[in-house]
């Protein structure tokens, strides 16, 4: 019987020589770099905030900078109140319930310049398009001079369960509840059906993100955001009638 070749044992102890590690590492790095370039392109394809060449709803500020609730009535030197909301956002509805009527009243009487920024990112969270549908309907109502009324009716009709969304019939109903009638109602309905202000809806979402708003409701008084951890912010959401006091403290 021949003696076992010692070379075999030695070979077994030697590390295997697989494919070049450098080549595999290079492939991984190339894949990551390509992914980086792809991300660069993809991240730029998000919606634009430009509204150049498109019709603006009545009272809307160009490039998605929000819609003035009562255009032309704000008195000189009054504070500007910017509200960033989403029609599907339940906490926005808390703000609406607690202080909506005061906010409308002060806007209507010109004591504040009231600007709404209707964001739509909850559509992504809820996998629907209800926020965009409602925002567009709001702008259609603005053309009839009824944005605040629509806004109020929409929140009153917000589904109890977040994410249930709105149908076209829902938002048309809100338009009627807002008091749009006659030929204006016809215009409103066709504006809803045509999704006429889709571009302004997108522009508002993008612009709001650029303004540093990532959550709703966000409240700005004279351009300064109200801290969402502050007592004043939480009273706006929970204490009816707290708006004038909070406004005074921050303007």
């Amino acid at each position: 019987m021949p003696r076992p070749d010692p070379k075999e044992k030695l070979d077994a102890l030697k590390p295997k020589e697989g494919p070049s590690k450098a080549i595999i590492a290079a492939i991984v790095v190339v894949v990551l770099v390509l992914g980086g370039f792809a991300a660069l392109i993809v991240s730029q394809t998000g919606g634009s905030d430009s509204t150049k060449g498109t019709a603006l709803p009545k009272g809307a500020i160009a490039d998605g900078n929000g819609i003035v609730a009562y255009p032309g009535v704000a008195k000189k030197g009054v504070p500007t109140v910017d509200l960033y909301e989403d029609f599907q956002c339940p906490i926005c509805n808390e703000l609406e319930k607690a202080n909506g009527s005061d906010i409308y009243a002060m806007g209507k009487s010109g004591q504040i310049k009231l600007v709404y920024h209707m964001m739509t990112f909850l559509d992504q969270n809820e996998h629907n398009t209800a926020s965009a549908l409602a925002a567009n309907a709001g702008y259609c109502a603005a053309d009839a001079g009824k944005f605040p009324e629509y806004h109020k009716a929409n929140y009153a009709g917000q589904p109890a369960q977040e994410g249930a969304g709105y149908t076209v019939a829902d938002v048309k109903k809100f338009g009627r509840q807002a008091g749009i009638t006659g030929s204006a109602l016809k215009t409103f309905d066709s504006c809803v059906d045509a999704n006429k202000y889709a571009k302004y809806v997108q522009a508002t979402e993008t612009r709001s993100g650029k303004n540093g708003v990532n959550s709703t409701p966000s409240v700005f008084i004279n351009g300064k955001q109200l801290d969402q951890n502050s007592q004043d912010y939480s009273s706006l959401l929970s204490q009816p009638g707290s708006f004038p006091k909070v406004l005074k403290a921050h303007s």
Partner: peptide
Amino acid sequence: LEQTKRATRAFQILPYDLANLWGTF
């Protein structure tokens, strides 16, 4: 991705465009 971009911006560390890029990559 849209949500991830927004979540990345919510950290308020990177500027808008860079946060979107990082959120995508």
